[in-house]
């Protein structure tokens, strides 16, 4: 299945070069979780190794847990500590 990943903050600097606005697709096995996705991203790019430690997760723009099982077409955002205001 295809998952759409969104990176923010300094993680966006580690996104694949073809990613526009920090967004890029990732292919995962059916039944994969957010944690599986994070593991795959970490294996491809060392700068993404601490996603599960430092970021909150949103699936389809709602906060979600690492064990959330993903569905085809889901948008998964990794949200570092926020700094608005």
């Amino acid at each position: 299945m295809t998952i759409h990943v969104l990176l923010f903050g300094h993680y966006r600097d580690a996104a694949p070069s073809e990613a526009e606005g920090g967004a890029f697709p990732v292919t995962l096995a059916d039944g994969a979780t957010v944690a599986d996705l994070a593991k795959q991203l970490a294996a491809q790019e060392p700068r993404l190794a601490d996603l599960l430690v430092r970021t909150r997760i949103a699936v389809r723009a709602e906060f979600a847990a690492p064990e959330t099982i993903l569905q085809e077409g889901d948008e998964v955002a990794f949200l570092p500590p926020m700094s608005g205001g």
Partner: peptide, 20 residues
């Protein structure tokens, strides 16, 4: 500040920083 997904990038005299 804590719950809205917005981040700032700071342009400073000694470089550019992501504030997280």
């Amino acid at each position: 500040k804590a719950e809205v997904p917005i981040w700032k990038k700071e342009f400073a005299n000694d470089g550019t920083y992501w504030i997280e």
